[in-house]
């Protein structure tokens, strides 16, 4: 980060080029000092409580750190990763994490896009939908989980009661049976993540100029064609940004599922974060838990690079 003063090109964005070179360089040095001063109050806590622990955490993944009084910690190279390769439970939790993150992100995106399109119309009563669309964001994930546990309660929850009223099977244990637990948790995940996605897509929609639409309409383009050729391309940057973030957030999520199922039944909803949490704080294997974290970072990064590259290629094409 000491490269600031050597960055002549990036610096000129806001300034008109001046004729006197020496003056400019002095100005720039003063500006760099100022930048540092302004950034310092934010940098110090970030360095202490986020960069430093992160670096330590990564290193911890190469040690045999374990719970215990006066334990000696030593590096064990790649041993943790060799062990992880043979740990089928870890990989199955990874598979569950991938299914969870991709399905939630995808469904969230589709649901939020539909809602954003509706909210962008001048429909009566849309204020209600708009408020409700934002509300899940104001509710702690723990509360969301409790609420859905009540709704999905197999004996007294309204979902089963409505099914029973319609004459359908009404004794489904949504969060407790092996086959249904993960899909159920995914639906709750979609509900809880709607606000951020909806609001971002709505912002993107409002940024697309109305003239483009009018032009397309005059050319005789139907609603669907206008959506395909005007709305979607205009939204693309926003879509990529929000799905990327959603994907990361969902993969790393913890609280919602911790309270909903705690990874059960029988590990069917054991997201990687829950698995690593248990490894560290139930079984006391800190080194191995940190190694899991490292593997997660590498895999997310690889995935992101592939995703973003594919998007960039699609954009060029």
């Amino acid at each position: 980060m000491t490269a600031v003063t050597e960055a002549p090109l990036a610096d000129t964005a806001q300034r008109k080029p001046g004729p006197q070179r020496p003056k400019r360089s002095r100005q720039r040095r003063a500006q760099a000092r100022e930048t540092w001063l302004l950034l310092l109050p934010a940098l110090i806590p970030v360095a202490l409580l986020s960069v430093y622990p992160l670096v330590q955490g990564i290193a911890l993944g190469f040690t045999n750190a374990q719970a215990g009084l006066n334990q000696v910690v030593s590096f064990n190279g790649l041993q943790n990763y060799v062990d992880l390769l043979g740990n089928s439970l870890f990989w199955s939790s990874f598979r569950i994490g991938a299914v969870w993150a991709i399905s939630v992100t995808l469904l969230q995106f589709l649901a939020a896009l539909g809602l954003a399109l509706l909210l962008n119309l001048k429909l009566r009563g849309r204020w209600l939908a708009r408020t409700l669309a934002l509300v899940p964001w104001a509710i702690p994930p723990v509360t969301i989980a409790i609420m859905w546990r009540l709704i999905l309660n197999p004996d007294y929850g309204p979902v089963n009661q409505i099914l029973g009223f319609l004459g359908l099977p009404s004794d489904i244990n949504w969060l407790g049976s092996f086959a249904i637990a993960l899909p159920t948790v995914i639906v709750v995940g979609v509900w809880s993540g709607m606000p951020q996605t909806t609001i971002t897509l709505l912002a993107g929609l409002q940024n697309i100029s109305g003239e483009l639409h009018e032009a397309a309409e005059i050319d005789g383009a139907g609603t669907w064609q206008r959506f395909l050729h005007v709305t979607l391309p205009g939204l693309q940057p926003v879509i990529i940004a929000i799905t990327t973030l959603d994907l990361i957030w969902n993969f790393n999520s913890f609280a919602l599922v911790y309270v909903l199922t705690a990874g059960g039944p029988g590990g069917q909803t054991m997201l990687p974060m829950l698995f690593a949490y248990n490894e560290a704080f139930r079984y006391g294997d800190f080194g191995s838990a940190a190694a899991m974290g490292n593997v997660m970072v590498v895999i997310i990064s690889v995935f992101l690079v592939l995703y973003l590259r594919a998007q960039a290629r699609a954009k060029r094409a």
């Binding site: 670096v55 330590q56 955490g57 990564i58 290193a59 911890l60 190469f62 040690t63 750190a65 374990q66 719970a67 215990g68 009084l69 006066n70 334990q71 910690v73 590096f75 800190f286 490292n294």
Partner: peptide
Amino acid sequence: ASAGLLSACAFNS
């Protein structure tokens, strides 16, 4: 990761 290798010994129970 490389920086961390040097300082990990600071981790102790």
